[in-house]
Amino acid sequence: MIKVQKSDFDINLEIKKITANNKNIGGVGSFIGIVRDNDEKKLKSMTLEHYPIMTENMLEKINLEAKARWKLIDSIIIHRYGKLYPGDQIVLVATFSQHRKDALEACQFLIDWLKTKAPFWKLESTNNGDNWVKEKISDLAAAKKW
């Protein structure tokens, strides 16, 4: 399930929606990305912008790739956009499988790929002004290893 939304999400609720109807699920791998205040920059807010429709298409593609590579019973990607504040949840990735290896690896794959392949951009607003977050070499390397 792919959702791109402004509103917050509840991981427990989302997971239960899926596990309630699938009694063959043996494990859930999950990742939540949270708005972080970087050291001394004193982050006031982070605004996430995206490219509607392309975002959903790309997340769907990445999700299909995960399902092709691992034995997944189901998966969730919820990505928020709009103005968020330190401590707010940004993204939820959850993967459901019979065994832990598939769930855990697929979860890491999904978050690694969506960081550099899904059309989102982050504008940080700090006490020193606004700046667009730059692509990180470490994120590119993480995506490439899959």
Binding site: A118, P119, F120, W121, K134
Partner: peptide, 10 residues
Amino acid sequence: IALFPPMTGG
């Protein structure tokens, strides 16, 4: 066509 900087999701 869309032009943009490298993506920074997640």
